[in-house]
Amino acid sequence: MDELIEIVAQQLDWPAEGLSEHSSPVDTANWDSLATLRIAMALEVMHGVAFSTDELLKFNSIGAIRALLEAKLECR
């Protein structure tokens, strides 16, 4: 199972099988601003990165989060 999708599923308390790159707060239950922050904080702990508020405001889908995370990891 994809690591990012597992983290999102865990933070949303939602089955990972029901999530995809296109899943977003608009169509995913339990995905509110607090859940977004919890997803970010889990990724920060796991990868040793830090997301700014500007970046958090772009956490609009799993695909968008993946792109932001990969860009951060490439810059290290």
């Binding site: 707060p25 608009v26 995905w31 509110d32 601003s33 977004t36 405001l57 956490f59 609009n60």
Partner: peptide, 11 residues
């Protein structure tokens, strides 16, 4: 909010 900041829409 729906289009650009959907994480805040639920509340």
């Amino acid at each position: 909010l729906r289009a650009d900041y959907p994480t805040f829409l639920a509340a």
